[in-house]
Design a protein around this nucleic acid. Sequence first.
DNA 1: ACCGAACGGTGATTCAAATCACATAGCAGT
DNA 2: ACTGCTATGTGATTTGAATCACCGTTCGGT
Lengths: 215, 215
Amino acid sequence: MAIQQVQDDLLRKSYPLFEDNLVSEIEEQGEFKTFPANEVLMRKGQYIRSTMLVLSGLIKIYREDDEGNEFLMYYLRPGEACALSLVCAAKHEASPIMAKTVTETDVMMVPVDTMSEWMSKFKSWYQFVIETYRTRFDELLATLDNVAFRSMDERLEFYLKRAKEAQQTNLLNISHQEIANELNTSREVISRLLKKMEQKDMVKLNRNTIELKKF
Amino acid sequence: MAIQQVQDDLLRKSYPLFEDNLVSEIEEQGEFKTFPANEVLMRKGQYIRSTMLVLSGLIKIYREDDEGNEFLMYYLRPGEACALSLVCAAKHEASPIMAKTVTETDVMMVPVDTMSEWMSKFKSWYQFVIETYRTRFDELLATLDNVAFRSMDERLEFYLKRAKEAQQTNLLNISHQEIANELNTSREVISRLLKKMEQKDMVKLNRNTIELKKF
DNA sequence: ACCGAACGGTGATTCAAATCACATAGCAGT
DNA sequence: ACTGCTATGTGATTTGAATCACCGTTCGGT
């Protein structure tokens, strides 16, 4: 099958509500790219010239501060786009976030100027943009709730649930250090809490893997 | 002057980018309301049937959790609307937030169904919606940063700066207890930190008022 | 099979913030 | 002016989490 055909299938499957004309324009204007796992797609402070439409794989979006602290905001799955890239693209602002692939990921890069045209041209596009804002807003609120109201053990549970859902597996391949970074705490704290969860038979721990049992 | 004329003036002044036809429809479909200071406009869990367009005054938007904890998300000033009410209105979902007036406030209540029509009918309306999402997203990120990365003294400073800007005054009429609630901490902590700031000559404290000096 | 790096476990200590306990000050209503 | 309520000040104690110190384990590379 031609490469173009594969890309078209991916796009239509991930974004079933897009009109045919919109799909054609995306294919014309956009650039198809594949990134390996664990690749940083965007750093804080970079300028954004295009939005990524996720076609396959999984992306993590982080917030970073000036001292190198970071924490996980949310995941992006196929059919989703980052609200922030829509924001920044529109304002030609520097990115306030960092994006990183979890698994190998296919995306379609769409240039900014094109996007704003589509807003008036394609109903399905602005519905998509609105829906993107909506779901990202909800996700961000959930993250905020946890940071503001919950103690570290509750936040860890929430983190693991979210990871399970995003990655569709009970077997997470991740180190304690990485979890600590994503919750903006220290490795020791996570190790201790995970150990307690193991004693309650909620998880099973092995080097670089966490098996989720009661989730 | 007729009441309708006053309302029309307020609306046009606060939302100068709205098309004439849109202003007419808002006046036809919407309901003009005035709330006194310190009135709760919306509680968590309520269902949202309309969005508020702020015409004058000032509103605070809080996040609440199930145990009665709360914290301030951001302010809404004239010309602004709450992104969340747009979200929930669209999804017919319960409100995840609480809204409260700071000063006497005039708003225009717009029913949900009408709003979605406007999305395709009035370019200035969907531009407004997009812009609302954008700015609320930015505000929410700033709030999140503070909770996630900053210590309580830094968060307090940020809080005071934001309050000054929203209320356009150096003389805040607010108790330590109220600040504590809005930062989800305890009154003693705020009293102590404010005392330290007074010693540094950053503020001047009096019963129910805080005078901001170096801000 | 050995080495070095990354990973994970765990006690001891420090620290910021929450909580407890109580005192004092200022304002509002009678 | 008295009363009572709300707001504020401040020490003492507790607590959850961060940090420090150090250990053994596992894995990948040669």
